[in-house]
Design a protein around this nucleic acid. Structure first.
Lengths: 176, 176
DNA sequence: CGTTTGCTTGAATTCTGTCAAAGCAGGTGG
DNA sequence: CCACCTGCTTTGACAGAATTCAAGCAAACG
């Protein structure tokens, strides 16, 4: 898709781009840096639903497509440069341009697949397998993000992720 | 939505309506009985993604909307009566009828929300909390389905779900 | 420097899975 | 109608996985 018709924006690490309750007027494509989407549960714990490093899209699909108040936060975990895919502009563009529609469908499908894979991994994997799948899904991201964020994404404590990493390192040195 | 233009079908318990690899030509609305969607992982274990009792929709969204080979099974866990929402007929109907579109959007949104809730519960809940949320999501279904299916949906062993139920029963008798 | 923040470690505890045995149906054939 | 399967559920002992809590370490920052 040609993104030149959309606005580019720079945001600092920690900037919150979307709050629960707000109606999402834009989706985000990350050019540089990294965003996360997450919710805060009743006991105050943060649960990360998705990361979006370079070339990923991130949005509250529900709010974005249905124009209803959303439930999730989106914020920057690094200083980032992002493209705002404005709802109105987006809908207009897609009408004109079949190619845009294809590319968008592709992105949308990918997010569906990612979601399904995530469900399956949470249903059936242990800590080690979850971490390995995280590294496949987000190559290189493990080196950039603080461990506690990854732990939140994987649904385990930072301590346990630290332990799991050590186990993995031991295994790999045994092999070699 | 007016479902009279779609075909109704009766299926026996155990009937498989959709296989992985197939291109889904229909979504299903359950009038009576119950369906499930699931995948079989590399080690041969079944993981249930969703149940669809009365008035629920179920489909392989990815395959249905993108007309690509799917990844999931859909089958009947009880003798069921279902409405086939044929892709072509559906698209035609929605074009004509704004009211249809609204109802469909509602169903679609519900499934997004359900999916998000499911992610969150797998990320943050223990066995007991997961089971309680299951009962909220599917009222009465716990009485109809074999325990092993519910365990598969919740991502735990049947033995542990049995144990969890006993714990819950004890707690509730302590209160009264 | 001292403080802060995040990561690692270890011990104790809780949670969940594995395995084996026994109870409890519903269904079938005699 | 009964006896026998067969599959599902329950139970308990045990092992392994994950969390909690507390302490120590190291890099980053003022």
């Amino acid at each position: 898709m040609d993104f030149s018709s959309f606005k580019t924006k720079r945001v600092e690490k920690g900037t919150i781009l979307l709050y629960p309750g707000a109606i999402s007027k834009a989706a985000f494509k990350v050019q540089k840096g990294c965003l996360k989407s997450y919710i805060i549960d009743d006991s105050g714990k943060e649960h990360i639903l998705q990361f979006a490093p370079e070339d990923w899209f991130i949005s509250d699909m529900e709010s974005y497509t249905r124009k209803t108040p959303g439930k999730i936060y989106i914020s920057a975990v690094e200083d980032s440069e992002i493209v705002l895919i404005d709802t109105a502009v987006f809908e207009y563009t897609v009408q004109l341009d079949m190619e845009s529609q294809k590319v968008w469908s592709e992105k949308y499908r990918n997010s569906l697949i990612a979601n399904q894979n995530r469900l399956i991994s949470l249903l059936s994997y242990n800590a080690e397998q979850k971490y390995l799948q995280f590294m496949e899904t987000y190559p290189g991201l493990a080196q950039r993000l603080p461990l506690k964020l990854i732990a939140s994404y994987l649904g385990m404590t930072p301590e346990h992720l630290s332990f799991t990493r050590k186990q993995l390192a031991k295994k790999q040195s045994d092999v070699s």
